[in-house]
């Protein structure tokens, strides 16, 4: 894929002396009897870009949804930017303020305009004055290249535009970390590129990103590390060059042979 070629060379490797942004220690989760996450250990430093891949049902979405507590873990510790996630609502609020999320199906608010989608959380969660929130929102809408759509409703935009609004909405909270849960899976093929380009730019700006995706071209260009999951476990994790050139685990080899033709 040629998506990130223009930017790929500009990306600096993550500074590995930055503080740990996301830490998962022996995280386990069950849906009833079903063991979805098994002994997950992952440490992401500030500015790192992690791509998580794996077959469907491998627990990759569940894992990143645990990071902002959309899903609850039953054992182990999750520490986000020094705050440990527990049932404590204050801690959860604190984490969600600092962690943005972009969903597969955008999850924009259909009854609000694009601008209102972007200003809502800064106004109500960050207590930002409306005027200032609108300036911030327009700034980020410009950055995702759709300032002219600010007064439209999400339903009037294309899928790619909606996803870029969703990215702008997350950015307006000025988060330390952004989670992407299959951001291009629900898009028409010709709209994938515009969303990936936006994400590459974000990576270029040094945002800490955890991305669940099947876009291996994106992974190759942008990721510091690729994490491969299967059956609720992390099977293999490596830098992209090694991951693609010399996969170690049988399961990884099989997965890569399926998706890289």
């Amino acid at each position: 894929m040629s998506v990130a070629e223009n930017h790929g060379s500009l990306l600096k490797p993550a500074k590995l002396n930055t503080p740990v942004a996301v830490e998962l220690d022996d995280v386990n989760k069950w849906y009833g009897d079903f063991h979805v996450l098994r002994d997950i250990n992952l440490r992401v430093r500030g500015g790192e870009r992690i791509v998580i891949c794996g077959p469907s049902g491998s627990g990759k979405s569940t894992m990143i949804r645990c990071i902002n507590r959309l899903e609850e873990h039953q054992a182990g510790r999750i520490i986000i930017d020094g705050v440990e996630l527990t049932a404590d609502l204050k801690k959860i609020d604190e984490v969600r303020r600092e962690v943005g999320m972009v969903f597969q199906h955008f999850n924009l608010f259909p009854h609000l305009t694009v601008l209102e989608n972007c200003t809502l959380a800064p106004i109500w969660v960050r207590k930002m004055p409306k005027k200032q929130a609108e300036e911030v929102a327009l700034h980020y809408l410009k950055r995702v290249k759709i300032p002219e759509q600010a007064n439209k409703y999400p339903g009037q935009l294309s899928g790619g535009q909606q996803q870029r609004v969703a990215i702008a909405r997350a950015l307006c909270m000025n988060p330390k970390i952004i989670l992407f849960d299959e951001p291009t899976s629900a898009l028409d093929p010709e709209m994938v590129k515009e969303v990936l380009d936006t994400m590459v730019e974000l990576a270029h700006d040094g945002m800490t990103m955890l991305v669940v995706t099947h876009e291996m071209g994106f992974a190759r260009q942008v990721a510091n590390r690729i994490v491969f999951m299967d059956e609720g476990q992390i099977v293999e994790a490596n830098v992209p060059e090694e991951f693609f050139a010399h996969p170690q685990h049988e399961r990884t080899k099989m997965f890569l042979s399926q998706i890289l033709r």
């Binding site: 902002n68 969600r96 999850n107 924009l108 959380a121």
Partner: peptide, 27 residues
């Protein structure tokens, strides 16, 4: 997804209900 979108941007329960869920549900 509407609940998740609202929670992910940091809205609390009553904010989420008042600003996101109820306006759509009542409509």
């Amino acid at each position: 997804g509407q609940y998740e979108g609202a929670m992910a941007v940091g809205l609390r329960y009553w904010q989420m209900m008042r600003l996101i869920i109820l306006p759509q549900a009542l409509k």
